[in-house]
Design a protein around this nucleic acid. Structure first.
Lengths: 221, 221
DNA sequence: CGATCCGTTCAGGCTGAGTTAAGCTCAGCC
DNA sequence: GGCTGAGCTTAACTCAGCCTGAACGGATCG
């Protein structure tokens, strides 16, 4: 899962990013509105966290620009102001959620997970695919009920796949979602990760579609 | 837009309902957990507002029951408690948003709108042609409902054809669309691809127009 | 400082998608 | 009817794309 964090306060941004990475998120940080707008418009993210008070380009303008270009990207707005009129403005600009500072990082994480789950079209907190289940709020995978031990990258890949199970996930897009910054295409590390995943959850579950990407299915049947 | 409001405090429920109706929402009120659960399970709502402290059946239980029966209904939880651990529990049960009392009705309305907007984005626009269907967002072809297994080139050809079904697709133009760069006309590889496609979806569906190109039709003679 | 774990790189091997080529079919035309 | 050429089909070939085992190096932790 890849998050775009647009926040000019470097200290706060670092703290949030560290907390998110501890939860296996991939995080890109933009320090001002322009950079944030550009990244959100060109890269593939699952969700964006957007501060309202930004240099160069204010948060609402960034959000409006994304919506104007038809980005479906879910956006959580972050702000120091607690006034309800501000919130209304945020939602009017197309925000999906709103959090006021100060806040618990745990709550931010929960809200982000809920946003991603919902925007992937899943209502229930648990997504199942054959013997494999994913509990969205906690981020835990289980195989036949037993919790799986996955590394950060394995987790990101599997999470991306299960959110779009039964659909082919494009190779390039998958790499974009799994790796922070720009993904180099001249590497087979993703294949190695997939191979290791297959050894853990069974070879049949991750199907490879030549020339396009991977697909998570219930295995057989 | 229809809202299910599960709230035992009649005064508060009335206030919320009035505010929502002022915004042209249709509101059903349930005064206890059992009624709320039943309504949410049998009626069609766009979104539900769920109080946590309810008589007869507590809020989290209601939510879990909905999720268990596969309801895709987006749910906003309403509670008097402000602890972040409570919020985490709410999200774990499958909530999509969380609001603590007291709150501005304007914020509730905004959050409900955001929830509905996001959960509405999952209607699948499908192109159909006889027994063949194409789901544009996922890019999946299906024949009589069964997903088709296509190679990259087969997929490109079929996609080009179904986007202009019932119209003759010029050979040269088809090759230009399917092959990167400039297509050499001195090859019959396209014909091979078409032949393989025909074997998969039935010979009648792709009609040959001599001297011009191909045409995708419903297939009946 | 050593141990462990994780992500990456590299090399070797395999599979199958896409192409080529050759022979066949059939529509259109005289 | 017979000729002609566009299009169809099958089989074989080739190489890009993918898999995987092993080894390397960086990070983290005691």
């Amino acid at each position: 899962m890849k998050v775009l964090l647009v926040e000019d306060d470097a200290l706060l941004a670092g703290e949030i990013a560290a907390a998110l990475r501890r939860e296996n998120f991939a995080v890109d940080i933009a320090a001002d509105g322009e950079e944030g707008h550009h990244l959100g418009d060109t890269e593939a993210y699952d969700v964006a966290v957007l501060d309202l008070g930004l240099p160069k380009m204010p948060g609402p303008a960034v959000l409006r620009a994304w919506r104007k270009s038809g980005r479906p990207l879910p956006v959580l707005i972050l702000t120091a102001r607690d006034g309800w009129t501000e919130k209304v403005d945020g939602f009017k600009a197309g925000a999906d959620d709103y959090l006021t500072k100060p806040f618990r990082v745990e709550e931010l994480i929960m809200r982000l997970r809920a946003l991603v789950r919902r925007s992937a079209g899943h209502a229930a907190p648990e997504i199942a695919c054959g013997p494999l289940t994913f509990d969205a709020p906690t981020g835990v995978f289980a195989l036949d009920g037993l919790p799986l031990k996955l590394t950060a990258l394995e987790w990101r890949v599997l999470q991306a796949l299960i959110l779009r199970k039964d659909v082919v996930f494009d190779r390039i897009e998958l790499m974009d979602r799994v790796y922070e910054g720009d993904a180099g295409t001249d590497s087979n590390s993703l294949e190695v990760i997939v191979a290791r995943l297959r050894r853990k959850i069974g070879h049949a579950m991750i199907e490879t579609v030549r020339g396009r990407g991977y697909r998570l299915t219930a295995g057989l049947a």
